[in-house]
Amino acid sequence: MSRSSTVPTRAHQDLAIAWYRRIRRAQHDHGRAAGTARRWATIWTVGGLGLGVLAGGSYVADLLDLDVGLRPALSASLAVVGVVATAVPSLTDLGGSRARHERASRDFGRIRRELAITALDAELSDVARYKALQNLKTQMDAVALASPNIPDRLWKKSLDQDDYFPPEFGHWRAR
C-alpha cells in the first residue's frame, strides 16, 4: 500500500465488486424472505378469520334451526381450526422473522450504498480506500452475524446473479 495514487488498484476494484455483489444478493434475498413471511402471516390470519366467520355463521344458523344434525360439530370444528390458523403466525414468529429480515435488508442496503460511494470517490488514496474497505468489512460482518439465515430456497434462486456488474462501477470497466 505504498502507492499514493488516487486510482483504485485492480485488487481493490475486484474486491469491491465481489463485496457489492454479495451485499446486493443478501439485501435482495432478505427482502424476499421478509415478503414471504409477511405473505404467509397474512394467509394464515385471513384464513383463520374466514374459518371463524364460517363457524360463527354456522352457529347462528344452529340457533335458528331446531333440526341441526351435524352442524354443531362442524361449527365447533371450524371454530377450533380457525383459532389454530389465526395463532400460527404468532406461534411460528412470522412477524418477528419478517421484521428481522427487513432490518437485515435495510442494513445491507446501507452498506451497499456506502461501498458504492467509496468506489466512486476518485479522491481517495489507496490507503484511505483500504481503510474504508476495512470499515465496510467490519460492518458487513456485524450485520451478517445479527441477521437471520436466508431460507435455502431463496438463496439458491439468486445464485445465477453472481455475474452482475454494478452500474456504479461502470467507470472501472474501461481499464
Score class of each variant (00 low, 15 high):
Asp126Ser: 14
Asp67Cys: 03
Lys137Gly: 15
Ala79Glu: 02
Glu114Lys: 06
Ser75Glu: 09
Val83Glu: 03
Asn135Phe: 09
Ser125Tyr: 09
Lys131Asp: 15
Asp93Ser: 14
Asp62Leu: 08
Phe108Thr: 03
Thr118Trp: 04
Gly57Asp: 03
Val88Tyr: 02
Thr86Ser: 15
Gly56His: 00
Gly52Ala: 03
Arg100Ile: 08
Ala85Trp: 01
Ala119Ile: 11
Ala132Glu: 12
Thr86Tyr: 09
Ala122Ile: 13
Val88Arg: 05
Leu91Gln: 08
Arg106Gln: 06
His101Val: 10
Ile117Arg: 08
Arg106Asp: 10
Val80Met: 10
Ala85Cys: 12
Ser105Phe: 03
Ser58Cys: 12
Arg71Trp: 12
Arg113Ile: 13
Ser58Tyr: 01
Met140Leu: 07
Ala99Gly: 03
Tyr59Thr: 14
Thr138Asp: 09
Asp93Met: 11
Ala73Trp: 13
Ala122Gln: 15
Leu70Asp: 07
Arg106Val: 06
Arg71Leu: 15
Arg112Gln: 15
Leu94Trp: 09
Gln134Gly: 12
Ala55Ser: 11
Val81Arg: 02
Ser58Asn: 03
Leu64Ser: 11
Leu70Met: 10
Leu63Gly: 07
Leu74Met: 13
Ala128Glu: 15
Lys137Arg: 09
Pro72Tyr: 01
His101Trp: 04
Pro72Asn: 08
Tyr59Cys: 04
Gly52Cys: 01
Gly56Trp: 00
Glu102Tyr: 00
Lys137Ile: 01
Thr138Gln: 12
Ser90Leu: 09
Ser90Lys: 11
Leu70Trp: 10
Ala87Pro: 11
Ala104Tyr: 02
Gly56Arg: 00
Ala142Lys: 02
Leu115Glu: 01
Val127Ala: 15
